[in-house]
Design a protein around this nucleic acid. Structure first.
Lengths: 212, 212
DNA sequence: CTACATATGGACGATACCGTCCAGTTACCC
DNA sequence: GGGTAACTGGACGGTATCGTCCATATGTAG
């Protein structure tokens, strides 16, 4: 749908233009991840991305537009990674490996920064309705990945047909998000592992019921 | 321990002084809840709390000190409410009533603002180490309330003795936090209910195992 | 080689916000 | 009723940040 990205007039766009544009977004995404939206200034972005201010404002109407672009960028990347990982999962052991990957990755910086999507959602949802909708859609996409996986489990007979796939997927997503947050406040990813484990354990118990 | 509150020199404190101080904190807490820490200015606080700026700076060294005080205030209030509610819970139906209360409360503003503790944790954890520790302690206190409850369940024989109470409590906390966050991005509390439900369902299944 | 998009680089105005300061006022305790 | 804490009210300096603007330079496609 649509052709993604900005709201402003950026109709024509040469290869070079597009390149700088993405560089700005990627740099801004990095800065925002570490310092938050409010803690990141446009001058920071200008310096870090090696662009002149005029160019920044050529590509983005204002800071809000940049932030929205960052949300799309981070969101699409996150979902793509998760899709890649989750689509391969066929068993409970595979699910546990997926969890390990997520936790290990977060352990690289001791849980700092939280979930790439979650922290943005928290900071922006109540201040920018359009951004909120984007984030909502991204969460929905993530949840759908879980649903696909669970339906695969159903077909494989390791999850009962009657299981409420949508609700379980929501629970998984929330476990992930809650895990990220508690880990962030603890500077320790252990709680994140526990939280996701509990969700997986639940699925596993449902599966045992299916067998009986 | 200690005797809570500020870091600055506020040795002596008359009744009147203490009163204005708490009024400032309470007002700031309200503003911050709606606009976030970054979105709340000290002038906002001054106006909303009907205090002169001089007084604000008499009671708090700087904005950071005020924010920390707000965290303590909100945290203690939140934990107190949860303690009140959770300590009464003796059965699974009670647990579901607790969940209802939490969700209903959040539904009053359609999930906006997220969890009083969670959103603060998200915004502040990576920027202020002292604040992060406070929030970590508050999460730990909350988790302990869950642990107490689960141990009660064990004594009552509705949860197996072998259950890992600490891990389950972490899972519950994360489900709550994740639920808050997804609800915030969705402007709809349904996912929050689902998320907590899944955690409760898991406990319930464990309980059935105990009976077998 | 010409025309246009892309880019530099930084000056600039306009605010917004933090934090200081102070002269004067009001409550309250002994 | 004298003294001290608590408070008013707002001016003020300093600075950070947003967003505008422009004169100039460079790549690149036709």
């Amino acid at each position: 749908m649509e052709e993604g990205s900005s709201e402003t007039a950026v109709a024509r766009l040469t290869a070079r233009g597009a390149k700088t544009r993405s560089r700005i977004i990627a740099t801004a995404a990095d800065l925002i991840r570490v310092r938050g939206v409010g803690g990141t200034t446009l001058d920071d972005v200008v310096v870090a991305s090696n662009v002149s201010k005029s160019q920044l404002y050529r590509h983005f109407e204002d800071k809000q537009a940049l932030v929205r672009a960052v949300i799309e960028f981070v969101g699409e990347r996150t979902i793509a990674v998760e899709r890649e990982r989750l689509s391969k999962v066929m068993t409970f052991n595979g699910l546990r490996r997926w969890r390990d990957a997520l936790v290990e990755n977060n352990a690289l910086h001791e849980g700092r920064y939280g979930c790439p999507l979650g922290s943005l959602a928290n900071e922006v949802s109540d201040q920018d309705e359009i951004a909120r909708k984007k984030l909502h859609d991204l969460f929905a996409a993530w949840q759908e990945l879980f649903e696909d996986l669970l339906r695969r489990f159903q077909k494989a007979g390791i999850l009962p047909q009657e299981a409420d796939v949508a609700q379980l997927a929501t629970g998984l997503l929330a476990a992930v998000q809650g895990g990220y947050l508690v880990a962030q406040a603890s500077r320790d990813v252990t709680p994140m592992a526990s939280a996701i484990d509990m969700a997986i354990a639940h699925l596993h118990m449902l599966s045992r019921d299916a067998a009986s």
